[in-house]
Amino acid sequence: MSTGSRGGRGAGPSVDDGVRALLLLMPRLVGRVKRIRVPEELESLALAPRHLSLLAYLLFDGPMSVNALASQLEVAPATVSLMVSDLSRKGILERREDEADRRRTIVSISDEHRPSIDAWLAKGATAWREALAPLTSAQRKMFVDTLKAYERALGEE
Rank of each mutant, 00 (worst) to 15 (best):
G155W: 02
R96S: 13
G10Q: 08
A76S: 14
G155I: 00
K90S: 06
L147P: 00
R103D: 02
A149L: 11
T126M: 10
T146N: 07
L87S: 02
M26H: 11
R9C: 06
D145G: 08
M64D: 14
S53A: 15
D61Q: 13
T136Y: 01
V33M: 12
T79Y: 09
G18W: 03
S88Y: 13
V75A: 06
Y57N: 05
E156A: 15
S65L: 08
L154G: 06
E151V: 15
V80P: 04
V33R: 14
L82S: 15
T136M: 00
R140Q: 11
R104V: 06
D118Q: 14
D101E: 01
L69T: 04
S71Y: 14
L54N: 01
F143D: 00
L147Y: 09
N67T: 15
D111N: 10
A70P: 06
T105C: 05
L87Y: 02
R102G: 03
S71R: 15
I106E: 09
P39Y: 09
L54I: 08
P27R: 06
A76E: 12
G4C: 07
R28H: 03
L147C: 06
G10V: 07
V19K: 02
A76K: 14
G12Q: 08
L55S: 04
M26S: 08
A68H: 06
A122P: 00
V15K: 04
T146S: 14
A122R: 12
V107M: 04
A11D: 08
V84F: 09
A122E: 10
S81Y: 10
G91A: 05
E40C: 04
G91H: 06
W120F: 09
P63N: 08
